[in-house]
Design a protein around this nucleic acid. Structure first.
Lengths: 166, 166
DNA sequence: CGACAAACGGGGCGGGCGTTCCGTATATTC
DNA sequence: GAATATACGGAACGCCCGCCCCGTTTGTCG
């Protein structure tokens, strides 16, 4: 692979990350190309469809979330972290909420596992109600992101966390 | 106004209600026109823009919500009713969540007042934490709709309601 | 029934956006 | 430095959708 090609690929990824986080998945490819200082054709050479570009960007965030869940973080803090991530990154929120973009199965499975372990630990420690499932939590996070976006802050997340106590 | 014009106007409104509820605001006007059995031109004669048609449909729902709030309903039931309404009607959910479509000021004010009174009563009766504002509640409803849509049911709403107790 | 205004329908226009194409430029190799 | 493969940019294409236009139809009224 030529050096300029590799450089451009990285520039596109970095720019796409910023623009998608700020604007969400509705942003035109031309806009990402313009801000990255390349032509639209160059974007399409590296990522065959718009969807594949978004997938590449989202995948990186999924990995970050998985790492966070495995880092020994406390459950409540992780919940807050996820909501912050959704609030800061419209593309992530869209991808999680609508399910329109499918994440590679192994990456999603890894996140799910790390996620379930964290929940299990919190339930064993009786911090969280035992009748909550990982799927429940994902749905609640999606809801908290919507709430936080509507309000502009994450203050109300505490209410949901309170409701999760045994 | 000619009889056929009035009939068509009503058909368009009824159809738009169904289609918007099912598909959300992204649905093309042509689709609404087709299902109503009229041409697109006819839709635009009655409603000068797409936005004005959506507004007309949403306004009707706002009135229904206001009536419900004034009906002496119990707070928790009203909360559930609002979430159900958002779940059943994507256009309502979009309109509430994004704020992209502005509702006539008097209709919105009436809903807000009825809403605040209901909350006030619940707080006086010590059913709901006293530090919650009407705006907080609206944001939480938006979040519950997102959660419910993601899950397909409203089971998790109880968690938020639990978190609202004093 | 006839005349006229009102309403209808759907083809068409314009703008936006995803995607492709190709003439040009540049990195690499010898 | 020449030859070649690789990559670049942005014009162009096709599709979708909101909105408009106008020839045709239909309701209304004397």
């Amino acid at each position: 692979m030529r050096a300029d090609a590799r450089r451009n690929r990285q520039r596109i990824l970095d720019t796409a990350y910023d623009v998608l986080a700020a604007e969400g998945v509705g942003v035109p490819i031309d806009e990402i190309a313009r801000r990255a200082g390349v032509g639209a054709g160059t974007v399409y050479r590296h990522f065959p469809t718009k969807e594949s570009l978004i997938e590449a960007v989202v995948l990186d965030r999924i990995h970050a979330m998985t790492d966070k869940a495995r880092s020994g973080i406390d459950f409540t803090a992780f919940f807050a972290f996820m909501v912050e991530a959704g609030l800061a990154n419209r593309a992530i929120a869209d991808a999680l909420a609508s399910g329109g973009y499918q994440i590679p199965a192994d990456a999603e499975a890894a996140l799910n596992t790390a996620f379930a372990e964290l929940l299990q630990k919190a339930q064993t420690a009786e911090t969280i109600r035992s009748d909550i499932t990982p799927d429940d939590l994902k749905a609640l996070i999606v809801g908290c992101v919507a709430t936080a976006r509507h309000r502009g802050d994450t203050d109300l997340v505490q209410i949901v966390v309170d409701g999760l106590r045994p």
